[in-house]
Design a binder for these strands. Structure first.
Lengths: 352, 352
DNA sequence: TTGTAGGCGTTATCAG
DNA sequence: CTGATAACGCCTACAA
């Protein structure tokens, strides 16, 4: 029932608590013999030091926090994995924390800074709408990765890694235009979302404009529910059903995520239509699923691996004081899949 | 630079630390006026109490730990979400922790018990091979959910929620047999895996036997790499490629997860074959992707929602002392999708 | 209703 | 090399 503490170990070994502490923490000033003896009793009694006490007392740690907004997002899952490895390589401890949609990630971060004496923080996802003052209060190096921000000018108090959502979604929509599509619908998060959704919509609008296509508000399909920012297949399916049921004419769809695109395909199939013969579908992100789907989803691949690695690199550069905060934008890559084809007014039945 | 503490707040308000503590923790014995005053200064100075100190001092908390082995698994992602809500409904704090493949979840749990004074622990995924002694040492109610265990007899020191992997995979393979398939390949984790993979293989073997089909070792495709237990589309793709390239004859494939099944489909398509006309493909789990895939994957749906809810229920029953530890097995549901069809020796080109 | 003091389990400091 | 001892920041008797 009683928790065994460092004192108990000390008593058992006939040593002082500080010696036990030294043994545990690999301090240099300790006799090898007593050290092994202590380590043995620790193992024997399954003693595990109390982290709360440690964190409270320690002046610094090697902990890096990774705060993720949207842990279900497959795109993030991959980034997390890579960051995890990179951080481990720096011999640091990763503290992974899932942040809810309504939660304020900076508050969570602040709490962690106090609790764990963090070395640095990585924010993954979410929307960057915090004041410089709030961020400075965190007192540790910060990197925002794949976080959207309306004004693309980060302050000097944090680093920033991302693709340019406007530019990249422009690429995709422009690609659809060049294929000859003129009636291009877009599936997107709800209107209140000022995050990535809005940026990608901007790219869509600009691409249409540059291709001399008039913007048709009826082809912009927002998720209805407020606060509904989740990029799920189900939402893609729902949105596409609405769109198809509306009777509105269109030949291509740009879904602002691959998950939405896949859901959309399902709706299209269920309406007895084909992808891409009847409707071309394109996504965004370049997640594995887009590649494995049938047909392969035409998508805009974000260089996940490089982005994740660079995120960690930037963080450690600042931690080491070697560099000051930076702003890195990555280029996406348009992957042509089987879900899009050039627009054909005669509605051919036998492509290929 | 200096961290602001409870003492600072106390000083600023001209109050004692205990009063500040009472204000923060909603204690009854406190003057409303002083309470609001304190709360205001706390807000004004953005004071956040140090969790380490709290955990160290508190004798109990309302924290429940959820230790997940394989956070990338879409099946778990859904369960986590549901458990999260259920735990919140019990007005408890969820401590979500990702456990690496090589990490021992019980060690992590032990560490958390000490650090956070946990009320209970839920283990999601992984393989249950811990001694009763180890588990008892944790001192708090335990539930293993969707964890595999060779001997299906849990001790009395923990609860257990799962489907019967043998029975359920039997159902699926039996279904394929009843469709007329006699050469059924299986895609599975590496041979060293004594977890879910082995159980599902048992179901496969039994189903074949009951259908008077001789077991053909060459149709059992294990992941090659040791320690490779990840149920990814990529692995499914690789395995299926090997299988197809081997020239071995078969008409159906049972992949022990939907992700593997989807990867397998991709490989089949790339070999110029069709699903299900040339090869029937079935999966396991019933994740969303199986439903959205084209064709829809025939799968064995695990009742995620109920399982997740029951997991939390069992935990709280024990916490409240109302019930003793239990062992709940759920029935899966075979969802017929478009990826399977009855075996047709004439290799029809125009199904329905 | 409020304040003071002691201790939670460690680590850091400093004298031996 | 080792062992007391004083913090770390908070909560909680207990006394006022």
């Amino acid at each position: 029932m009683e928790m065994i503490t460092i004192k108990d170990i000390a008593k058992m070994c006939g040593a002082g608590v500080s010696t036990v502490s030294r043994a545990m923490n690999n301090h240099p000033d300790i006799n090898e013999e007593t050290k092994t003896k202590i380590l043995n009793t620790i193992k024997e009694y399954n003693y595990i030091p109390n982290n709360s006490a440690r964190n409270l007392k320690r002046t610094e740690s090697r902990a890096i926090a990774l705060l993720v907004k949207g842990i279900a997002n497959p795109f993030f899952v991959k980034m997390i994995k890579i960051m995890e490895e990179a951080i481990e390589k720096e011999r640091c401890l990763l503290v992974l924390r899932h942040v809810d949609e309504e939660e304020n990630e900076v508050d969570v971060a602040m709490s962690l800074v106090k609790e764990r004496k963090l070395r640095g923080i990585i924010f993954l996802g979410g929307y960057l709408n915090h004041t410089k003052e709030e961020l400075l209060r965190l007192q540790v190096p910060l990197v925002f990765s794949s976080t959207s921000s309306m004004d693309q000018k980060p302050g000097d108090c944090y680093s920033y890694v991302s693709v340019n959502d406007v530019t990249e979604s422009y690429k995709m929509v422009d690609y659809l235009c060049k294929l000859g599509h003129r009636k291009i619908a877009v599936l997107i998060t709800n209107e209140a979302d000022c995050g990535i959704g809005r940026l990608r919509l901007q790219g869509y609008e600009k691409a249409l404009k540059d291709n001399q296509i008039e913007l048709d508000q009826e082809l912009i399909y927002h998720m209805k529910e407020i606060g509904m920012t989740s990029y799920t297949m189900e939402n893609g399916y729902e949105l596409m059903n609405e769109l198809l049921d509306s009777g509105k004419e269109f030949s291509a769809v740009f879904a602002i995520s691959d998950t939405l695109a896949i859901g959309a395909c399902k709706a299209i199939f269920e309406h007895g239509l084909r992808v891409p013969e009847d409707i071309s579908v394109s996504g965004f992100d370049g997640i594995d699923m887009a590649h494995y789907y049938n047909p392969t989803i035409t998508t805009l691949r974000q260089p996940v691996e490089e982005m994740a690695k660079e995120t960690v690199n930037l963080l450690f550069s600042v931690i080491r004081g070697k560099e000051t905060h930076q702003y890195k934008t990555f280029e996406g890559e348009l992957l042509e899949g089987g879900s899009t084809q050039s627009y054909c007014c005669c509605d051919s039945d036998s492509p290929s």
